[in-house]
Design a protein around this nucleic acid. Sequence first.
DNA 1: TCTGGGGTCCTAGGACCC
DNA 2: TCTGGGGTCCTAGGACCC
Length: 342
Amino acid sequence: MAYWVLHVDLDQFLAAVEILRRPELAGRPVVVGGKGDPTQRGVVATASYAAREHGVRSGMPLRTAAKRCPDAVFLPADNTHYEAVSEEVMATLRGFPDLVVEVMGWDEAFVGAETDDPEALAREVQAAVLAATRLSCSVGIGDNLLRAKIATEFGKPAGMFRLTAADWDEVMGDRPTRALWGIGAKTAAKLTDRGLTTVRELAAADPAWLAAELGPVLGPWYVQLGRGIGRERVEGTPWVPRSRSHETTFQENLTEWDAVRTEVAALARRVAGDIATEDRPAARVAVKVRFAPFSTYTRSATLDAPTTDPDRLAAAALDVLDLFTSRRPVRLLGVRAEFARE
DNA sequence: TCTGGGGTCCTAGGACCC
DNA sequence: TCTGGGGTCCTAGGACCC
């Protein structure tokens, strides 16, 4: 039997979950995100396929989404509920004997399996998830995680697609480098500047040259991406978080520095609550400030000694906040705690 | 198009030490 | 006098992903 990687990805997850709760929304443009109010600050978390037909995309400001699709139903993000539904999906995957499951987010996971018929396994997974949650998913099948992940896009919605070394060049060669998992708009532009536009061109590039151009690790890694090369085994060991954070965008900018201090202390206490639950002390604290309109800065400091104590964490966050001298209006504040490495 | 919230990893410069 | 070279840690910012 051969080892296969399946990438399981729920279709329009947040919108689908909301449509389950309100079946009358089926087929309608549904936009989930922020407070569900397109006149307020917030962005689209997930748009239903009907909304996408109007050009609504994830990450788009709700205000823009409302302009593009005035008939859309706007719903607030109910993260607690999505987390619970996601847990049902992941439990369904873990219910398969001999599958290794690596969760990548609320709505996606890699599955590793020994099988000679990965398509049959994909169908079983889709049926099991549908039976347990009434949600549909798409499955990418690959000989490594990168190819499985990319394959999923060709299977959406509710389908499947297989992508391996054998057909990588045929399927991906002519596509822009942006289609690769790990290459965003900025990197795609840098590659284009250097004469690398397609996946095939990137695959043929000299790793040492790209190392000199774009960094000792990233340069050669991009070439590997172009060749479709990546990790081959799905890891079942639970992920150990490196940090915990909370941040808030204010509906009205904060203009009083006393209010800024109060909010930073409150965020630090929320973070302290999280890390106390996990019983892992923080070794560093970072404070993020986004001044209006949108310039963002981060300052951080290593603590004298690791702690989970809310008072000490709040005091440390306020000390870091003191490193900021500007008193311009504040749009966003964030506090992040980093755990000690190893 | 006036741009959320929660994360990870890489890069590069400066400090500091030998 | 004003100059080495390597290694590691700290910090800020950038890029990407869900």
